[in-house]
């Protein structure tokens, strides 16, 4: 008994906080991995279809995004429910595509420009009319590398 009492001195046991930074760093890394940077807020609902023949987009800086879908609930009063196109962070029409592409191109050095890919994020329920118009506009602007964004299909 005597030895027992001796061990429990008056000193308050302290938990070491030396590893706290480790934990914080771990959390930081975790969130860094999981979050996807999105430079533009989506104003249309995009639920891309699924496919199997997928190619990964490698260099993010060489990709420009064109979103097509029905406006989100908050924008329906102004823009209706018909599928609309979003370039950058605003609703646009097909006529705005050349300028949009040109702006993106201007940011890149000349030797990288032929690698520019347009990623079309199009909702599955949209009809092909608007898609065909976009394709024509891209062809006219000589932007021929196109990636139809799709999720992975598991059979």
């Amino acid at each position: 008994m005597a030895t027992f009492e001796k061990k429990r001195g008056k000193a308050s046991p302290e938990v070491s906080t030396a590893s706290l930074p480790d934990i914080i760093f771990m959390l930081l890394f975790f969130f860094m991995m999981v979050t996807v940077m999105r430079d533009s807020e989506l104003k249309v609902d995009v639920n891309t279809p699924e496919a199997t023949e997928l190619t990964k987009l490698e260099k993010k800086s060489l990709v420009n995004y064109i979103f097509v879908g029905r406006p989100k609930v908050a924008y329906r009063d102004t823009y209706g429910t018909k599928p609309r196109m979003q370039l950058g962070d605003k609703f646009s029409t097909v006529a705005d595509i050349p300028l949009f592409l040109e702006k993106h191109k201007a940011k890149l050095p000349e030797n990288q420009r032929q690698g520019i890919t347009s990623s079309l994020k199009i909702d599955g329920t949209v009809t092909m009319g608007i898609v065909a118009d976009i394709k024509t506009a891209l062809r006219k602007a000589n932007q021929l590398k196109v990636n139809y964004s799709a999720g992975k299909r598991v059979d």
Binding site: M33, K56, R139, N142, L144, K145, V146, N147, A150
Partner: peptide, 17 residues
């Protein structure tokens, strides 16, 4: 365990206009 959200899709080369 986490899958990083990747940008994937069907790559197509459009014919020139």
């Amino acid at each position: 365990t986490t899958t990083i959200a990747e940008d994937k899709g069907v790559l197509v080369r459009l014919p020139p206009w």
